[in-house]
């Protein structure tokens, strides 16, 4: 019996954000937007969903008088990401066997 894929992570843009954040200490919103090619509005919504799930921390501050949003993955986010990858690998193992 498969564990279900985490619905918060099983969305292309949210998974892209988490995959970016898993390997860095923190990243600015503009960096994530640039790397994912998402629109600011859509990205804001998905970042908020990840924040509500407790997977990322979002810090808003000012840098040179401009608003600056920084995102950082949390411990819960790392665990959820690792679980998600594990479930994906289980799926792929079984589908290879059945092929």
């Amino acid at each position: 019996m498969f564990k279900e894929l985490d619905p918060i992570l099983h969305s292309q843009l949210r998974l892209a954000v988490m995959s970016l954040l898993i390997s860095v200490k923190e990243a600015e919103f503009t960096f994530i937007k640039e790397k994912t090619n998402a629109t600011a509005g859509n990205l804001s919504v998905q970042v908020q969903k990840l924040k509500d799930a407790g997977y990322i921390d979002v810090t808003k501050q000012f840098k040179d008088n401009y608003p600056l949003t920084t995102c950082k993955i949390t411990k819960a986010g790392v665990n959820a990401f690792e679980d998600y990858v594990q479930v994906l690998q289980d799926y792929l193992k079984v589908s290879k066997k059945n092929a």
Binding site: S11, Q12, L15, A16, S19, T36, A38
Partner: peptide, 19 residues
Amino acid sequence: TEDKDFDPEESLALIRTMI
């Protein structure tokens, strides 16, 4: 990247690309 569902292979490919 768009906000849509996708299969496990696509998920892994996306993770690899972003890393």
